[in-house]
Design a protein around this nucleic acid. Structure first.
Lengths: 120, 120
DNA sequence: GCTCTATATTGACAGCTGTCAATTCAGGGC
DNA sequence: GCCCTGAATTGACAGCTGTCAATATAGAGC
């Protein structure tokens, strides 16, 4: 109960050990979990996050998969709409960046600091 | 790069800011994210976690939803098979408990300690 | 064994989703 | 304007998934 509740647009990031999620909270958060629930998208996200300067252009990402351009674009769109990444066009190229706030919100729901949950 | 890598059955919990996830890691982790990617399942998980004694019987959970018994059972099965919860039968009743290790693994992938990521 | 309650499984079905071919859009060079 | 590259969108399609009715399984009391 000593968890710090942070209210972002009505979304309280209460850890699993706190209050149960409301239907609205669950709907919002589950949509982000769902976006990460595809191996390609999860890998895309991790590739973007691991990239130099914290951003990667689509051209950097596509090569890591044996998938077509439309498929990569579609996955990036899903991540974008889930609020996990944001894109910026620079001429012909489009660079994507992870939005850490969204990931942090998910992590906060999964539980408090690791050392605290292992002792519970 | 100073993140502590924990190897559980070949599953390295490298944060998003570290090495990109391998295809195998992404497949394993995305399946858990996928399990949480349904609002009903996410609410079930949070209800179980928030319950007294850290466990709840199906009878406690069903009332929170206007869904049929088979649907609740199905969702619980998905969570179970994703490794997010474990069940224990006591006579007629079945009690479910959250497996924090799984949630912790997900949280670890999403990023390091919150204070570290907000400064990045 | 019969009856009951609690829970899980099975099968059908409508809606959802990953994938790619075709196409469109965005930007740049000439 | 034409041509090019990079990226996104559209439409079709096969496979996946949430839901419930029907059924099966598990456990307890008599």
């Amino acid at each position: 109960m000593s968890n710090q509740v942070r209210d972002d647009e009505g979304l309280c990031c209460s850890p699993m050990t706190g209050e149960p999620l409301s239907a609205e909270q669950a709907a919002e958060l589950s949509s982000v979990f769902k976006a990460l629930g595809d191996p390609v998208r999860l890998r895309l996200l991790s590739l973007i996050a691991a990239h130099a300067d914290g951003e990667a252009c689509v051209c950097d990402l596509s090569g890591a998969f044996e998938l077509s351009g439309p498929t990569i674009s579609h996955h990036l769109k899903v991540l974008r709409e889930a609020g996990a990444i944001t894109g910026e066009r620079r001429g012909t190229w489009v660079y994507y960046r992870v939005l850490p706030e969204t990931l942090r919100r998910l992590a906060a729901v999964l539980g408090p600091a690791p050392s605290a949950s292992t002792s519970a």
